[in-house]
Design a binder for these strands. Structure first.
Length: 656
RNA sequence: GCCCCGAUAGCUCAGUGGUAGAGCACUUCCUUGGUAAGGAAGAGGUCUCGAGUUCGAACCUCGAUCGGGGCUCCA
């Protein structure tokens, strides 16, 4: 009789007894929480079979963290049902940095409820309940989950779980159905849930670092046609230190929140009187915005764009022609009726640029023809989505449209890509990847398959040519054509969609755009849409968070503040300030009655890049003393040298 | 748009069915001080708006507006 079999542990053959579990194989490594058996994640309790390829999955690995978070979600669900026996279970998948679980409850959870649930979770963790996997038939699952209507729905869906809402496949895989029991040490079952798994060996491993974050409503299976469930979000980490580090990251993100900094630094505000999602820039924010715009306008002109201007409002027929109105009427501000016409605030600039193209005959000699403007558009975003500067109802796009021949399109797209990446770099964003948004199944996409395939191929080739990472985004295209977008990572690792480049074969046809080619025939140009920042407002918000309000000198609202040690030194600093002003530097001298340390505190909090301090010593030697935002000092610098140093930092657009 | 939460001084926030509070900021005065808060006095609020309940509402109810967290959406 053969009581032994051979498996491969991380590729190495190992002879083990029949009935050996993965847990036993990895008994020497306590950080292994789940096993990968023949490529599939399995519970450690899995009994190994002859020839299995087995790898230990560490709790700190991406898969390990997902399992930890999923299991922690189960712990939370058990705690919730303990306090709210009527709570029906939705789904509870792991997500980035944590997990959530949806519940159908009679009343929404309160912050106090979360505290109670969190405490109960501690008890469950301490009980070290085992996660036990059990295969069931559909009928058995239906019987056991008779009180869980949402689970029953999932059972019905399991064959198409791949198409189900995000997270549903964590509950039911495409194969056999399983139920996980949470078993106490005395053998009693504390909780069970229909779940694909795998799970941690016991609840104890969740205990090192979890925290419930917030509760919110979420539509069942992600559709607003479905009832809303109450979702609780939590975070979970292998160690307390990692939990703390996560909480610190969240706190840092809050400190950088552009809405907070916008108030603290007096950059912009959203007056109630104007309306939701409509921003006003204050003088200091106006400086940053103007510097951004001036630079971007100059760069566009250098890159061969013509600066144009168009109105904010138009008759509806224009947007009928472009095809926008049928698709997006409900996200446009409602029409104004006047002189028997319907006028709309524009939600996009391209139709107006098309009219400029069409205003006279065009020759192939003019192509590529590139129109650019800061075009203000208005979009009636749903009330629940308006958010700071990143999602507004009135925004200004740095929008351009390149009209090219089909042959010129690849080079133009490459040109645009290089241009936008260079621009982003100039603003201090130098870590990005690209996304290729393509046609989906939806009805909204217009144009033939061939056109889409060709346009997508052109974009893809240009994107690959940059050598940057390219991620697919199926179904993410605009209705009229595919797009490349640049996703930039900011100083704390978050990504933002910035620039977009779209290949459009539809609008030239809809507008009847044409140029005369070398052989005298009329040809239809291809149109390439491109926004570099997306919107000025949004980019302003992203930059504010990226720099945590400490803008590089060329963007800083106030670049230099002179701080006298005493009143007697004000004149000396005024003279320095005059020299700086003559060089175009934004400088102030703080002659107020405060003591010097107070002034340093005030202007440091305002994140002014250069503080120039002068007292007896500096004044006597025709010098100033630098104090930078990090607290470092550079004393006794001759005035002319100080001026050059500041001018140089501004001109080179460096951060200090 | 949907669910939940919120709105008190310029900002951050206490507060309670019966006279409106703090810190910072602001103004004035004293202080002339070398690297993140010197001292004193003062001014500042229709407690978001509208209706209702009440002898009485900033507080309780309803609605609106704006904001926050999510969901859905994002040309």
């Amino acid at each position: 009789m053969s009581a032994q079999l051979t498996v491969h542990r991380s590729g190495e053959p190992v002879v083990v007894a029949v009935g050996t579990t993965a847990a036993e194989l990895f008994a020497d490594d306590r950080d292994v929480v789940v096993a990968r058996v023949n490529g599939e994640l399995r519970d450690l309790s899995r009994v190994l079979a002859e020839g299995d390829e087995v790898e230990g999955v560490l709790i700190s690995s991406e898969d390990g963290l997902a399992v930890l978070r999923h299991s922690t979600a189960h712990v939370m669900a058990q705690a919730v049902q303990q306090h709210f026996p009527e709570a029906r279970l939705g789904i509870g998948p792991p997500i980035r940095d944590g997990f959530y679980f949806d519940f159908d409850v009679e009343r929404p959870f309160t912050p106090e409820d979360l505290k109670t649930v969190e405490k109960t979770m501690q008890r469950i963790v301490k009980e070290a309940q085992r996660f036990e996997r059990r295969v069931v038939t559909d009928d058995e699952a239906r019987a056991e989950m008779a009180d869980e209507p949402y689970k029953l729905e999932l059972i019905g869906l399991k064959s198409s779980a791949g198409d189900a809402a995000d997270g549903a496949d964590a509950e039911v895989g495409a194969g056999e159905l399983t139920i996980y029991d949470n078993v106490r040490r005395d053998g009693t079952v504390a909780f069970k849930d229909l779940c694909r798994g795998p799970h941690l060996p016991t609840t104890r491993l969740s205990g090192n670092g979890y925290s419930l974050l917030r509760s919110a409503a979420a539509y069942w299976r992600g559709s607003e046609k479905n009832p809303q469930l109450q979702r609780i979000y939590g975070t979970a980490w292998p160690t307390k230190d990692e939990l703390k580090a996560y909480q610190e990251r969240v706190a840092e993100a809050e400190r950088r929140d552009h809405r907070r900094l916008g108030t603290e630094l007096d950059l912009f505000s959203f007056p109630d009187e104007i309306g939701s999602g409509l921003v006003v820039f204050h003088p200091k924010g106006g400086v940053v915005k103007r510097e951004m715009e001036d630079y971007v306008r100059r760069r566009h002109i250098e890159e061969g764009f013509d600066y144009v201007g168009t109105p904010h409002i138009s008759k509806g027929g224009l947007f009928e022609t472009s095809g926008h109105l049928p698709y997006y009427e409900d996200t446009m501000f409602p029409a104004m009726e006047l002189e028997n016409s319907k006028y709309y605030l524009k939600a996009m600039n391209c139709p107006m640029h098309n009219l400029i193209f069409r205003s006279r005959g065009r020759s192939y000699r003019e192509l590529p023809l590139r129109f650019f403007e800061f075009g203000s558009v208005y979009r009636y975003e749903k009330s629940g989505v308006v958010h700071g500067l990143t999602r507004v109802r009135g925004l200004t796009q740095d929008d351009s449209h390149s009209y090219v021949t089909t042959e010129q399109a690849p080079a133009e797209i490459r040109h645009l890509l290089d241009f936008v990446l260079g621009l982003l770099r100039d603003f201090g964003l130098d870590d990005y990847y690209l996304e290729l948004s393509t046609r989906g199944d939806s009805e909204k996409f217009i144009g033939s398959d061939e056109e889409w395939a060709q346009a997508t191929a052109v974009l893809e080739e240009a994107a690959l040519g940059t050598g940057l990472e390219l991620r697919p985004d199926p179904g993410g295209a605009a209705f009229y054509g595919p797009k490349i977008s640049v996703q930039a990572r900011d100083a704390i690792g978050r990504t933002w969609q910035m620039s977009t480049i779209q290949y459009d074969f539809n609008q030239p046809a809809r507008f009847g755009l044409e140029y005369t080619s070398a052989d005298g025939s009329k040809q239809q140009p291809v149109m390439i849409h491109s926004a570099k920042f997306g919107s000025i407002e949004r980019f302003f918000g992203v930059l504010t968070e990226h720099y945590a309000g400490a803008f590089p000198p060329w963007l800083a609202p106030i670049q230099v503040v002179g701080i006298p040690v005493a009143d007697a030194h004000v004149d000396h600093l005024q003279a320095v300030a005059a020299k700086l002003k003559a060089r175009g530097i934004r400088v102030e001298v703080d002659a107020a009655d405060d003591r010097m340390p107070k002034k340093i505190r005030t202007w440091t909090k305002q994140k002014v890049p250069f503080l120039l301090i002068a007292g007896e010593e500096d004044a006597a030697h025709g010098a100033v003393s630098f104090r930078l935002r990090d607290g470092s000092q550079d004393n006794g610098i001759p005035v002319d040298e100080a001026v050059e140093r500041i001018v140089d930092a501004v001109q080179r657009r460096v951060q200090v």
